[in-house]
Design a protein around this nucleic acid. Sequence first.
DNA 1: CCTTGACTCTGAAGTTGGTGCAGGGTGTTG
DNA 2: CAACACCCTGCACCAACTTCAGAGTCAAGG
Lengths: 151, 151
Amino acid sequence: MQIGELAKRAACTLETIRFYEREGLLPRPERTGGNYRRYSAVDVDRLAFIRKCRSLGMPLAEIQALLGCRGRPDTDCRVVNALVDRQIARIAEQIGALKSLERQLIEIRQTCDERQNPEHRAGACGIIRSLGEAVNAMGAHGRQARNAASP
Amino acid sequence: MQIGELAKRAACTLETIRFYEREGLLPRPERTGGNYRRYSAVDVDRLAFIRKCRSLGMPLAEIQALLGCRGRPDTDCRVVNALVDRQIARIAEQIGALKSLERQLIEIRQTCDERQNPEHRAGACGIIRSLGEAVNAMGAHGRQARNAASP
DNA sequence: CCTTGACTCTGAAGTTGGTGCAGGGTGTTG
DNA sequence: CAACACCCTGCACCAACTTCAGAGTCAAGG
């Protein structure tokens, strides 16, 4: 099959596939006479694995490691467990950080009391004041949720 | 004060300050004879505001808008409310997506039964198998948590 | 006066995980 | 032979910074 078919089966784009190839997650495939990439069922499996891992939020470097374990069945699978555990820990940490953000935002939101500010002037708005105050007792050890503001 | 002092007070790096200047979030400051940036208390406040908003996960474009509201006290503060509400909604959505990931990862983690696989061989590890399976009934409408895997 | 060290400057490139586009080539069908 | 779908490469772009190279500034010590 060619790249469009593979993309359809993995529900991703052609660009993503070529990107994974550049990054070394997918092997360089054979080419047809017209220089088209040609893929097989093995590639479908491998790409499905990668996309599944990505959908679980794993970084490509760790997916790379998991693919290695997958290819060598004698690998100690505690390596695999460790990677998954690390991912679980990361996600849990992010959830914690986001919940903290959510609490703070809701608190800040409530400082705009519509009754005390019936003309809706920003100068009297508690939100602007709240946001000007120093960061107090933020989430944990100085590390912030770096990507909390993704689109 | 010069940039290092401002960075210390805002608990950020020099590069971040220069970056905000390039992006138009901080005004271009006066310079000393030696071409060093010189800042005042107003800049400390403004930067603190920006960092607070960033710590709450807001994108720079929205912080820009909030800074505008902050500068013009007659602005209708419902604009501010809308920005904060939007941010709360984003955070809530992200928490939901991450919780779904967490559930899936924990489920997958449990497929490595240490009793059934006493030699810890990856070939017999249920995790590798689970990760190869198709993505089934993932979080909501095809949209994934793009940045779930931030370091 | 000179040197050392702390501080600052600019501009460019790297990070992550892709997305989008321009400008072309290939292959099938009518 | 034209239209169209499909594919190719290589580069630029997104957010929000971070890192780096190479150079300039300034105060204190010898």
